[in-house]
Design a protein around this nucleic acid. Structure first.
Lengths: 211, 211
DNA sequence: GCGAGAAGTTACGCCCGCGTAGGTTACGGT
DNA sequence: ACCGTAACCTACGCGGGCGTAACTTCTCGC
């Protein structure tokens, strides 16, 4: 097998194992064994366990970050951006679940350099920028923008983490409900929200429930 | 030193170290050393590293869970319950930061039995119950209640995680803004929300000059 | 004063998993 | 035919950290 191909295979195997067991509990021996080779091959390609892990994390990080950044920097009203960003995350989770598991389940290595927390704060700062503008328009204290950004990011991120296992309802429905909550709040919740891209209908009932 | 006292001391030292380095990276040797004793003492009291860790996690789990459950099962309108639950979490984070760090930073051991994820899903199921009632009153699909519960819990939890390091603004302000977003949504956001009740630990909400 | 037991110590065995040294096969160019 | 190189293997050194065995105070209650 050619070196390049072997390298990619090892990355696949490593990603899968790291997702399943975590960094510490995964041995180089096991990675090699599952790839059908012996240990030194791994060292040949990545210089060690941390090297392989670093590449895996780096790829996943940039993939997810690109998707989210793309969504947040596209043109449209803030509500649409939020919707796209949520959907981007769910898309990523759907077809790269292992990668997401790795990012969520930090590691001693990535802790310092680039962890999931840093990715979240990166996303949050983008949201923060958008919100800062809106706050300025409405005359709110812009100092609170970071906090609200954090709340939104947290809501989306942990909902994604939940959906990772639940996988139901469909991601577009989840995204619609996320936007529903974020936009309308519990007091003005719509019963059956829909994506803004496919038209907006619903029951806008801004009456307080009391109770 | 008496056995009971030594046991408590080891728990303190262990909590601190586990919070700082994580489970794997913390050695029994180090725990013993920082407590001013030798390794076998730890084994005498807890049977091993996992034993000590289990006790630490169990205490933190039940402490936090009790606080949140207490808030969510108290009497009042749902909005007040949310507010109290958020404040309960922030209270816990404030005076037990190390414990919170441990819960967040799961471990290979606790993964199966009781991890932070299980605590979240526990909290979520309580929220879910409350929301199910509200959904029924409003004629919404109750099947979506778990999802909204997850969103709320996620929002609060990750905001707490952010506040763990930020520590600003004051926790009562954070709670007020959490409720603001959850209740009013971005479209109906208030500029300077205030608590509907005073803080549980006697720290009253500070009125700040809104923009 | 003196045994009993609680509290603690030093020293060791052992396993696991990382990383490396040195040898083996296959294949393309000359 | 023959050398060089790329891919790969078996086998080992080594360290760290868990858990334990056997020995030493220290302090009571009598």
């Amino acid at each position: 097998m050619t070196g390049k191909a072997r390298r990619e295979q090892l990355l696949d195997v490593g990603r899968s194992l790291f997702a399943e067991r975590g960094f510490d509990a995964t041995s180089v021996e096991e990675i090699a064994q599952r790839a059908g080779v012996s240990k030194p091959v791994v060292y040949e390609h990545f210089g060690g366990k941390e090297g392989l892990y670093a590449v895996v994390v780096d790829r996943e990080m940039s993939q997810l970050l690109d998707a989210i950044t793309g969504a947040l920097t596209s043109s449209g009203r803030p509500r649409e951006l939020l919707e796209r960003a949520a959907l981007a995350l769910l898309d990523y989770i759907e077809d790269s679940a292992d990668g997401f598991r790795i990012l969520v389940r930090d590691s001693p290595v990535a802790q310092a350099t680039g962890s999931f927390a840093s990715l979240l704060s990166d996303a949050a700062s983008q949201v923060e920028h958008i919100m800062g503008n809106q706050f300025a328009l409405r005359g709110f204290d812009p100092e609170h923008a970071p906090m609200y950004a954090q709340m939104l990011v947290g809501m989306v991120a942990l909902t994604g983490q939940w959906w990772l296992d639940a996988r139901h309802p469909d991601k577009s429905v989840v995204a619609a409900h996320l936007v529903n909550l974020a936009w309308n709040g519990l007091s003005g919740l719509e019963g059956a929200p829909s994506m803004s891209t496919s038209g907006s209908t619903g029951t806008p009932a801004r009456g307080s429930a009391g109770g």
